[in-house]
Simulated assay, not measured.
Amino acid sequence: MTTNTKRANLAPLLVDVAVPVGGYYLLKNGFGMSTLAALGWSSVVPALRTAWGAVKERTVNGLAALILFVNVVGLLLSLVSGDPRLMLAKDSGVSSAIGIGILVSVALGRPMMTAAMKPWVVKGDAGREEAWGRLASGSARFRRAEKVFSLVWGVVLLAECLVRVVGAYTLPVDTMVWLGTVILAVAMALGFLLSGALAAGPMAHMVIAEAKGSRSTAGTPVPVQV
């Protein structure tokens, strides 16, 4: 395991997710900015990352684009006011935006949640990093599991959104104020459980086996022709 490899794996998560999300809460709760202002300023990093990828690298940075999309949805929903049930229902808008973005990435053959999962599978180990690359390019089973991981999260988040919207319009407002948090927590737990069992776990086993096989092959002495 090398520190440089580990940092390289975690860097996209820190820049594309932790910085804008952490920035939002820091600006809103730490500096007392309004929701609208905090969302706007925290959108700067993902907006720049998305623009840089499109112009310089001729690719779309999936995580940065997703965070930007979520922030834009949040900005639009922050303008909604008045009806308390509508205010409760709008809280699920972020989940639906993320879920839709993830499902679209799967349909395009570029599952977005891979960037979030990979660091925890390779664990900064150079051998596992190389094994991941070989499997990603040569194993249909591995690529299928990669898509399943993102698919599970997309479906779970959309289902969580649907349940909260239904609850917002069928249950008492006071009940949904606390129940919404419970629903989100259950959805997250379900997402981790299903994605781990159906995709992340099998992928980790494949990566470990591939890395061990590569090391065994590398350590096998080559017969000398006499």
Rank of each mutant, 00 (worst) to 15 (best):
G127F: 02
A126D: 15
K123C: 07
G93T: 10
V73K: 03
E57H: 07
S34V: 00
G32A: 01
S95Q: 15
V104P: 09
K118S: 04
L66V: 12
I98Y: 15
G82T: 04
V60Q: 01
S78C: 03
G40Q: 05
A38L: 10
I98R: 10
L39P: 08
A37S: 12
P119A: 08
V55G: 02
A89Q: 09
M87I: 05
D125P: 09
S42V: 09
K56L: 06
G32N: 02
G127K: 09
A116P: 00
S42T: 12
V80Y: 12
W52V: 13
A115C: 00
A54Q: 07
S43W: 03
D125L: 06
P111V: 05
L39N: 14
V44A: 15
A126V: 11
A37Q: 13
V104W: 11
N71Q: 14
L103K: 10
V121P: 10
V55R: 12
A51H: 01
R128W: 01
A64K: 03
L75A: 00
M87Y: 00
S81F: 00
L86N: 08
E57T: 10
M113P: 08
S96R: 12
W120T: 12
I98F: 15
N61T: 04
G53I: 01
P46I: 03
S105F: 03
K118E: 14
K56I: 12
G82V: 05
T114A: 11
R85K: 15
F69L: 15
G99I: 07
E57A: 11
G124K: 11
A126W: 00
V122R: 10
W41Q: 07
T114Q: 12
P46S: 07
P119C: 07
V106Q: 07
S42W: 09
R49D: 06
N61A: 13
L79P: 00
G74H: 03
L39E: 06
K56W: 07
L66W: 07
G74I: 02
K90C: 02
D125F: 01
A97P: 15
K90S: 13
M87P: 00
A97T: 12
S92L: 05
A64L: 02
S92D: 04
S34E: 01
V106F: 07
G93H: 10
G109H: 11
L48S: 01
A37Y: 02
N71I: 00
S96Q: 12
T114H: 09
P84F: 01
V121G: 08
F69T: 15
A116N: 10
L66N: 11
V104L: 14
A64H: 06
S42D: 09
V73I: 14
S92C: 05
M112S: 12
V104A: 11
G53D: 03
R85T: 06
L39S: 07
K123I: 04
M87G: 13
W120G: 02
S43Q: 05
V121Y: 02
A37I: 05
